[in-house]
């Protein structure tokens, strides 16, 4: 099928708007080209219009320059405005929930802070189970959902370098509260699995990565790392990067002398930046589908 636009030989020639004929390629036919005198007149008009536009632009630039006072060379720049300081935590001793807890538990409730609408209450280690049980069961609080359990390591606080953090949510009241408990890696804290069974894996994760023991936990063992892993990776004294340790020595093949030589040469040329051979070897092992993790018993 040919399109309707296609002109057949001998068909009518396309016409220009002024009625003069033009060929199909769009080039004007020799009879349509105006005489030289008319062309010169059109060029002169265009040149005049360009000159007018240029003068208008120059006038605008001058007026803008007159509005701005020219800065003296070498003059100091105006000071950059400092960003407004962000919100800071405020004392929440007068918060109704804190008052209620203090009335119930007295000295066991420590300082309370509120930060962008989030309430944090410090609780003593000995009372954490009682406080959690109260917050869950009281009809005015009903914190029936343990959202998360995590931990923070403060190595400079020698007496109690770890802080357990319990994020609670009340589904019926749509309220949140955060409980904080200071502890160390010897004493640990009591498990809250008796209050919220969901704490089981959350506490196992904290035990795995921080080494905090949970008294009364039904199944306290590592959750993410292999059972025979040594060390707790989320402590501040544990480096970020993969390091050779007892586990890798037991389970991963050692580098050959040739591989070590290659590594040193590549390092010498600054090529070994993005990965080290040990990591590549681990990837190869995983890709090969070999069993490198001990069976979880």
């Amino acid at each position: 099928m040919m399109s309707d636009d296609t002109k057949q030989p001998g068909s009518e020639e396309p016409m220009r708007p002024d009625g003069s004929p033009a060929d199909s390629s769009g080039t004007p036919s020799p009879s349509a080209i105006p005489p030289a005198g008319e062309l010169a007149g059109a060029d002169a008009e265009k040149a005049a219009m360009v000159e007018q536009a240029k003068s208008r632009v120059a006038a605008i630039k001058e007026s803008l320059a007159a509005e701005k006072p020219a800065a003296a060379p070498g003059a100091p720049k105006p000071p950059v405005k400092k960003k407004e300081e962000g919100p800071k935590p405020t004392d929440a001793a007068n918060h109704p929930l804190v008052k209620k807890l203090k009335k119930e538990f007295g000295e066991a409730i420590g300082e309370a802070q509120e930060f962008i609408g989030q309430l944090s209450v410090r609780v003593t280690r000995e009372q954490i189970i009682d406080v959690c049980g109260f917050l869950r069961d009281d009809t005015e609080t009903q914190f029936n959902y343990l959202s998360d359990v995590t931990c923070v390591h403060y190595p400079e606080q020698v007496e109690a370098p770890f802080e357990m953090v319990y994020n609670l949510f009340s589904i019926p009241r749509n309220e949140r509260v955060r409980l904080k408990v200071k502890t160390d890696d010897k004493a640990g804290v009591e498990s809250v699995t008796s209050v919220w069974p969901a704490a089981n894996w959350l506490e196992r994760e904290v035990y795995d990565l921080f080494g905090i023991p949970f008294a009364g936990h039904p199944d306290l063992r590592r959750l993410l790392l292999p059972a025979d892993w040594e060390g707790y990776p989320l402590r501040k004294d544990y480096p970020l990067e993969f390091i050779e340790n007892a586990w890798t020595e037991r389970h991963l093949p050692e580098m050959t002398e040739v591989q070590m030589e290659q590594l040193n040469q590549r390092r010498g040329y600054g090529l070994e930046i993005l990965s080290v051979p040990q990591e590549r070897m681990m990837r190869d092992i995983f890709r090969g589908g070999k069993e490198v993790m001990p069976k979880d018993k």
């Binding site: 190595p155 004294d237 544990y238 480096p239 970020l240 990067e241 390091i243 930046i273 993005l274 080290v276």
Partner: peptide
């Protein structure tokens, strides 16, 4: 000794090493 790949890991490695030494000193 640690041979980290980037500045963040280098800082982390330095921190880990120094904290162990601080413990040793204490």
């Amino acid at each position: 000794t640690a041979e980290p790949r980037n500045v963040w890991n280098k800082a982390s490695a330095a921190s880990a090493i120094v904290l162990k030494l601080v413990d040793k000193k204490s």
